[in-house]
Amino acid sequence: MREQDIELFHRVQNKDEVALELLYDRYEKLLFSFSFRMTNNKFLAEEAVQDVFTKLWSKSLPYSEEKGKFSSWLLTITRNTCLDLLRKKKSNDYELKERDALQEDNDPSPEETAEWKEQHEEIQHAIKELKTEQQEIINLFYFRGFTQSQIAKKCNLPLGTVKGRVRLSLQHLNKILTKKKERGIRE
C-alpha cells in the first residue's frame, strides 16, 4: 500500500532521506510542470522545485491536515517560491539572461519535452473541467501571481469569498487529476 503523503512529510521533518526521495518521486513532475507554467523558464522551474524540496528538508514547515490536502499545500509553497524567483529575476535580470544562455547547451531531451508537455496538457484539461469562476480564480492566483486581495478587487468579491473559491478550486482540481490518474486517462 502506498504510504500517505502526511506520513512521509512527518518522516521528512525528522530527516528521513528515504521519505524525501519518495515525496520527490511522487511530486517532482507535477511541481516542475506547475513551475514551468508560472515562470515560462526551464531554469527557474527547476530551481523552484529544488527550493521546495530543500525547504521541506531544512525547515520546520507548518502543514496542517485540517487546512487542506498535502498536495494543495505543496502547490502553494511552489507558487510562492516561483513568485519569489520571478521577483528576483526582475531585480537581477542581466544575471539570469547569462544563466539562460548557458542552459542552451542543456536543452531537455525530446522525451523530457514530450513528458512535460503531456503533464502540462493534463493540468490544462483538468482546469477546463472546473466551473468558469474556479478557472478564473486558478488562473489569477496561480498562473498570474495575483494575491487573494488583488483578486477580490479585480473580481469585485469579498476577500472571504475569494479564499473559499481558491480552496474549493484546488480541491476540485485535485479530485479531477486524481480520478484521471487512477483511470489512466490521458487526454
Rank of each mutant, 00 (worst) to 15 (best):
Q135C: 06
G184V: 04
A45N: 07
P62L: 02
F32M: 02
S149E: 14
E66P: 00
E111T: 12
I138D: 05
E17C: 00
R11W: 10
I6Y: 13
V166Y: 01
I137R: 03
Y63R: 03
E66A: 12
I137M: 07
A152W: 07
P158C: 01
Y24E: 03
N14S: 14
Q13N: 11
R165Q: 09
L74N: 02
D100W: 10
L83V: 10
E98K: 15
K59A: 12
N80G: 05
P110F: 05
T113C: 08
I77P: 00
R99V: 14
Y94K: 11
K55L: 06
K117T: 15
N41P: 01
K181H: 07
F146C: 05
M38C: 15
Q134N: 11
P110I: 10
K117R: 15
T78C: 09
V12F: 08
L96E: 00
G160Q: 07
K69P: 04
N174G: 06
W57M: 12
P158A: 12
E98W: 10
S60D: 15
R165P: 00
V18W: 02
E65T: 04
Q4R: 14
G160V: 02
T81V: 12
E133L: 06
K179T: 11
Y27D: 04
F141N: 03
L30P: 00
T113G: 06
A126W: 05
L8A: 10
V166P: 01
F53I: 10
Q135K: 10
Y27K: 03
N156T: 06
H120G: 11
Q124N: 11
R167K: 15
A126K: 08
E98V: 15
E17H: 06
K97M: 07
Y27H: 09
F43R: 11
E129L: 09
L75N: 04
L22I: 13
T54N: 10
K181W: 05
E133F: 05
D100I: 07
L56C: 06
K69C: 04
G184D: 01
F32G: 00
Q148E: 07
I176F: 02
Q119F: 00
I123K: 03
K154W: 11
Q4H: 13
N92F: 14
K117G: 08
P158K: 11
S109M: 09
L130A: 10
R167M: 05
L130P: 05
L22F: 04
L130M: 09
K163M: 14
